[in-house]
Design a protein around this nucleic acid. Structure first.
Lengths: 136, 136
DNA sequence: AATAATGTTAGTATAATGCTAATGCATGAC
DNA sequence: GTCATGCATTAGCATTATACTAACATTATT
């Protein structure tokens, strides 16, 4: 089996993407920031973080939460798939915001190898509709 | 809000598609047939059927299970989305069986309006890779 | 030191998914 | 006509994901 498929749930995916897009080694996120961004209460967020930790995707030090190497890798993959399908939807005439929402529902379910093939099929744009690089 | 989005779970989707593809008024399915096709035990299947019934997608008479009108409609929509993405994956170089599996993971999550736009974008094939009509 | 912010535990709830064991019902074999 | 077989259904249980509140603990800030 090649490619990456379906190892995280929807909310785990949301959390990974949040960490990938809005944190860095210099600016790791705090639990309450994750909770408020995800519009959930801290105990709920803690639960998700705990699951991600047990999968090895997240590390915490002094309440600071950041992606592990493998978390960074899987987040990049999810974002690549996300931007590929976001681009597809936009090329098809779907609005940017709807394209983004739709892509978020499926990006963590789709095998990365298959997504890369789709990317070629839709003329390999290098940037997603928001202007971010598809392949990182 | 237009189009149809996310009103069924994965297994409800599987069951709807099974009923749509392998039953008719003349040949409705029995519970144990659904269970064995879905590789689950009858009580588990009964649970899914019960949920579909409560959503108005399925009717039963004398142990015979068939789609209601609205169940038929939503199943058709799911299949349209399925075949659209299956076609996309195949056009991209994914094998027929992998394309089908991948499409099954997402077809019930994608808004039908968006799928129809994607269908146009991929040159509006009238048949899916298995030779079945995409638009019913 | 007191208050505020933050993190964590404990307990609860729901939905989806799955199972086994037991019961109920109908039908065909004998 | 009874009995076995097949099928449907109920009851009970378990797991995972998701989410909440209330309470407690810890850490900062003033």
């Amino acid at each position: 089996m090649t490619g990456i498929t379906n190892v995280v749930s929807k909310r785990e995916r949301d959390c990974l993407v949040l960490l990938k897009e809005q944190s860095s080694d210099d600016f790791p996120l705090r639990l309450h920031e994750i909770a408020s961004t995800m519009k959930i209460k801290p105990p709920t967020a803690l639960n998700i973080i705990r699951r991600l930790k047990s999968k090895g995707y997240v590390e915490t030090q002094d309440g600071m939460i950041k992606l592990s190497d493998s978390g960074d890798r899987i987040s990049s993959t999810i974002l690549m798939v996300h931007r590929t399908f976001e681009s597809l939807f936009c090329q098809s005439g779907v609005s940017e915001s709807k394209a983004c929402r739709e892509a978020s529902e499926i990006d963590f379910l789709i095998n990365s190898d298959n997504a890369m093939k789709v990317l070629k099929r839709i003329d390999s744009p290098s940037l997603c509709p928001h202007g971010k690089p598809i392949k990182v």
